[in-house]
């Protein structure tokens, strides 16, 4: 077996999984972000926005996940695609950037992060399914760079990605203009993400926003919550005795002020 502490990817299950697949089993689904992620440059900096739905096929796997990943104080990255890939890729780059920051004693630059990301994704030839919008502010001012799974990058003043990108882009193409004011820009980002939330099935729930300026970063988690669940009209509590119990065991926790950890079996046919 591969030692547990070895870094990097392990491939020791691949042969077995190939065999299982050849016998007719389909490999299981990964959690996808579905996603509408957007980014734009405005007068004083850069803004990223994202919805908060994660999907597993047609199922909503997470109603309020986080798709805006912190890379450094001055850089965030919005992720779409395979959820685990966006999470792990951005975490790894965040870690490398922190080392870079400590070792050079300088604030990391956006282009550094972009090339780290694109080199990593290119190395894996598109098998790491991360579609990223990188936004940050460094000595070269506000920057917005997209990185695709195969490692290509793009530098634009506004961009959208994910399954809801068309809906969001429709909003940007209509309303984006250079040098917007902060409040207008936040509102536009929210509107673009909302377009994805309401018109794309892969996107849903709330809008997360991050505003990055020269010396300040504001992470506005759940900036807009257009899909709040209405409180239940009735409580669906079951009455005592409604569960048929065959056997009950009690284990007292060792740190509690109880007798030392012991399993005390109790036989009960019906819950009291």
């Amino acid at each position: 077996m591969v030692p547990a502490n070895r870094r990097g990817f392990h491939f020791d299950n691949c042969k077995r999984n190939e065999l299982l697949e050849s016998k007719g089993s389909i490999t299981a689904k990964f959690t996808k972000t579905g996603t509408t992620i957007v980014g734009l440059i405005y007068k004083d900096g850069v803004i990223l926005g994202a919805d908060t739905r994660a999907t597993e096929g047609p199922i909503v796997a997470d109603k309020n996940c986080e798709k805006l990943h912190r890379l450094t104080e001055n850089m965030y990255c919005a992720g779409a695609g395979t959820a685990a890939d966006t999470e792990y890729t951005t975490n790894m780059i965040a870690s490398k950037l922190e080392l870079h920051r400590l070792n050079t004693n300088r604030q990391p630059r956006v282009v550094t992060a972009a090339s780290m990301l694109s080199q990593h994704l290119f190395q894996y030839q598109g098998h790491i399914g991360a579609n990223l919008i990188l936004g940050g502010y460094d000595i070269n001012g506000p920057q917005l760079i997209s990185v695709m799974p195969h490692g290509s990058t793009d530098k634009l003043p506004y961009m959208t990605l994910g399954s809801g990108m068309l809906a969001a882009m429709a909003v940007f193409e209509t309303k984006w203009k250079p040098n917007m004011e902060r409040d207008d820009a936040i509102a536009l980002v929210t509107e673009a993400v909302s377009a994805g939330i309401f018109n794309d099935l892969g996107s849903g729930s709330n809008v997360d926003v991050v505003v990055i300026t020269k010396d300040r970063t504001d992470y506005l988690r759940n900036h807009s919550k257009p899909n709040q669940r209405v409180p239940k009209q009735t409580s669906y509590k079951y009455p005592p005795g409604s569960v048929s119990v065959i056997r009950k065991e009690v284990r007292y926790h060792s740190n509690a002020n109880q007798s030392p950890a012991a399993v005390v079996p109790e036989v009960v046919m019906s819950e009291s």
Partner: peptide, 13 residues
Amino acid sequence: VLNFSPPNQNFNT
């Protein structure tokens, strides 16, 4: 100096 510092006002994480 190592201490507990209040959250960074400028980068409110």
